[in-house]
């Protein structure tokens, strides 16, 4: 079970958090102008990487704040955590 460093509360047990899937998928500003394929791309398609992945997490049983995490899915190592709206650390791209 992970120990996650919530950027607002500090280090907490994984059981306080919920994972929210891939990060940095921006909701289209004008959905009505997208084709079915483009909308499906936004709605359904996810990378599901084995290796370094950018994810969204929320401190459900804590401050209820969303934040981003860079995690290596092959060994569960958490490489970085940063707040919503902050730029992702470039070295993992």
């Amino acid at each position: 079970m992970f120990l996650i460093h919530c950027p607002y509360c500090g280090e907490r047990e994984q059981s306080e958090f919920k994972a929210g899937g891939e990060a940095h998928i921006v909701r289209p500003k004008q959905p009505t102008e997208l084709s079915d394929d483009q909308w499906a791309e936004y709605l359904f398609m996810r990378k599901n990487i084995k290796g370094v992945q950018f994810e969204r997490w929320v401190h459900t049983h804590g401050c209820r704040k969303w934040f981003n995490m860079v995690r290596d899915t092959s060994n569960d190592e958490i490489k970085a955590i940063y707040k919503m709206g902050e730029k992702p650390p470039t070295k993992y791209k």
């Binding site: 209820r64 704040k65 969303w66």
Partner: peptide
């Protein structure tokens, strides 16, 4: 509530 917070914090801050 979780879903509303999600949109508020991440899509429409």
């Amino acid at each position: 509530l979780g879903k509303l917070e999600d949109y508020l914090q991440t899509e429409w801050p």
